[in-house]
Every structure is written in C-alpha cells, then in structure tokens.
Simulated assay, not measured.
Amino acid sequence: MQNNSFFKRSKWHASTRYLGHKLTYFSIFLSVCLSIPAWAAPVTEKPTQIESTIDIAQVKSFVQPTNLVGKARLSYLFWDVYDAQLFAPQQNFSAQGTYALSLRYLMDFSGPDIAERSLDEMRGQGYRDQEQLKRWLVEMLAIFPDVQAGDELLGVRSVTGSSYFFYNGSAVGEVSDPLFADAFFGIWLAPNTSEPKLRKKLLGI
C-alpha cells in the first residue's frame, strides 16, 4: 500500500495554475494571425528551490503508475498544449482527499499569464469575492514560473486542503487555504470545468 502519511501530518501555514486556456489560446491564435508569436517573449530566470514542509521523495513515490487515475492531452487548433495526469491513493480519487495533478507542458507560457488565466477560470466557476481573488492572484504570481516545452508543474492537494506546487521536481510554493484548492484544482476536476471531456479522461469516467 502506498505510504501517504505525510499528507496527514503536514500542517502548512506558509502563504505563498490552471491555465485559463480558452482565453490564453485565443490570444495565441490572434497573435499568430498577426504574425506575432505569443511565446516569443524571453523566458525569465527559473525559480530557485524553496524550503518546503513536504518531502519531495515521498511526493515522487506517490506520483507513480499504481496511483494513476487518468491522463489526457489538451490540444487546441494546431497546438498540443500539455499532457495532464491525475494521481490519487490506489487510484481512488476524492475531491476532498489527497491527490496530485501533473501538467507536462508542450508549449511555452509565462508564469504571470498562467496565474492570471487561472484566476479567470476560477471566476468562471463562480468565485466572486474580490479580496479573496486578489490574495489568490498574489500567491499564484509568487509561485508559478515561466514554463517551456518539456517542463512539468505538479500540484498536490493534502487531506487537510492545503496545496503545494513543484516545478521540475523542486518545491516552488504552498497555499494553505482549502478553498483555494477547491477553486484551483476545480479548473480541471470540478463538474463545471470548461473542459468536461478532459475532466472525464482524468477521472477515468
């Protein structure tokens, strides 16, 4: 049986990335039409590893085929955008339990764009508290790096409702607000996601 005790032990208090793809992809399409590639901006310096309350070795042991619930590739028009994989203990997903979502990017995107589009998707799910949304944006801007094709962003939800994030295997940030976890991971996994087909593949339904 997979050892997931670290999810139960962790109590995160550090205040610190779904891409609102429909708006982002439209901007990419528009940019191409104007012959200005949306990914042409230089990629900024990669984030440095931070102190984390989570043992990366335990996270890696959790993100294994034995825990893979489902996977899907998101494509738009002529572009493959990223490969997504969802992991849960013994493949038993619960929205209020422990799980991990991996995004392996196939294109380049800026960190600020990922954060801002994520917020747009959260609004689309019905989150309207402006002060709360501002706090979440600040936290996501501090966490999400620019990504290039081949990079991985991994988000993990603990059983306590905290979220923590890894970039190519290095910890880059944590958010302790359980409502943030609902809103962020809900971009892919909630019933009112803007990509229901992708959700079904991730959940294996």
Rank of each mutant, 00 (worst) to 15 (best):
Q2C: 12
N4R: 10
S5M: 12
F6I: 00
F7S: 14
K8W: 05
K8F: 07
R9C: 09
S10C: 13
S10N: 08
K11E: 08
K11A: 13
H13F: 06
A14G: 10
T16G: 15
T16E: 15
Y18A: 09
L19H: 07
K22W: 03
L23S: 14
L23Y: 14
L23Q: 14
L23D: 11
T24K: 05
Y25F: 14
S27H: 11
I28H: 13
L34Q: 08
I36F: 11
P37K: 11
W39K: 14
A40C: 05
A40R: 00
A41G: 11
P42T: 09
P42Q: 05
V43Y: 10
K46P: 04
Q49E: 13
Q49W: 00
Q49P: 01
E51G: 08
E51I: 11
T53M: 12
A57Q: 02
A57N: 09
A57L: 01
Q58V: 08
V59G: 07
V59M: 06
S61Q: 10
F62V: 06
V63S: 04
V63A: 01
Q64L: 05
P65L: 05
P65S: 11
N67C: 01
N67G: 03
L68N: 03
V69K: 07
G70N: 04
G70R: 01
A72I: 04
R73M: 10
W79A: 00
D83M: 06
A84D: 09
F87E: 00
F87T: 03
P89A: 04
N92D: 02
N92F: 01
F93I: 03
F93A: 05
A95L: 00
Q96A: 04
L101Q: 04
S102P: 00
L103G: 06
L103M: 09
R104C: 07
M107T: 07
M107N: 04
D108V: 08
F109C: 04
G111T: 03
P112K: 09
I114K: 04
I114P: 01
I114A: 03
S118A: 15
S118W: 03
L119K: 06
D120C: 04
E121W: 13
G124P: 02
G126E: 06
Y127K: 15
R128Y: 07
K134R: 10
R135F: 11
E139M: 12
E139T: 10
A142F: 10
I143P: 03
F144S: 06
D146R: 04
D146Y: 02
Q148T: 13
Q148D: 02
A149P: 03
G150W: 01
G150R: 04
E152M: 04
L154Q: 03
L154P: 04
V159H: 06
V159Q: 02
V159S: 14
T160C: 10
G161Q: 02
S162F: 07
S163C: 14
Y164R: 15
F166W: 07
G169F: 06
A171H: 07
E174Q: 14
S176H: 02
D177I: 00
P178H: 01
P178D: 07
F180L: 11
D182N: 05
A183T: 06
F185M: 03
W188D: 02
W188I: 00
A190E: 02
N192I: 13
T193F: 00
K197H: 15
L203P: 10
L203Y: 02
I205W: 12
